[in-house]
């Protein structure tokens, strides 16, 4: 995980950072008024925001191994599968493909059971790599 702290928007969502068994980032969002949509349910926008933060965290984690790059979200497609109820929501993401200029990331959010997500998202990022970051893996950066 990048040492960078979570941005203000992640604090607005109340997010905290955990790690899974592999050391990959997992974001946790508590239920509360700040993320509430219709009574008793999470707001779809808050779920989308959580998924995007999780996608960024996973991508930064993956990029940390090969030097950093600036990342810009190009688009996100969120599929909502279940209503988000009054309990914590977790989100994590996997990198489907990490290219030179584009990263395809798949994020998922769940509550009780990771196998039963409440929403998933595909997020595509544009990567703007610094020139020295373009070196092959294994080459020492001075």
């Amino acid at each position: 995980m990048s040492a960078a702290p979570l941005p203000p928007y992640a604090r607005l969502l109340g997010l905290t950072l955990e790690e899974d068994a592999d050391g990959s980032p997992v974001l946790v969002m508590p239920f509360g008024t700040d993320v509430l949509g219709r009574p008793g349910f999470l707001h779809g926008g808050a779920i989308a925001g959580l998924l995007e933060v999780a996608a960024v965290a996973a991508l930064r984690h993956a990029l940390a191994a090969e030097g950093d790059a600036r990342i810009k979200p190009v688009n996100v497609t969120v599929d909502y599968q279940r209503g988000g109820r009054d309990r914590p929501t977790r989100a994590a993401a996997t990198i489907a493909r990490l290219g030179t200029r584009i990263a395809n990331v798949e994020a998922r959010a769940w509550q009780d059971d990771p196998a039963r997500p409440i929403a998933t998202a595909r997020v595509n990022f544009l990567l703007v790599r610094e020139p020295e970051v373009g070196r092959k893996a294994g080459e020492t950066l001075s």
């Binding site: 941005p7 928007y9 992640a10 969502l13 707001h43 779809g44 926008g45 808050a46 989308a48 925001g49 959580l50 995007e52 933060v53 979200p73 996100v76 969120v78």
Partner: peptide, 10 residues
């Protein structure tokens, strides 16, 4: 962040 724009458009 992009999340608030998602909320706005939702």
């Amino acid at each position: 962040a992009s999340g608030p724009i998602a909320t706005l458009m939702d």
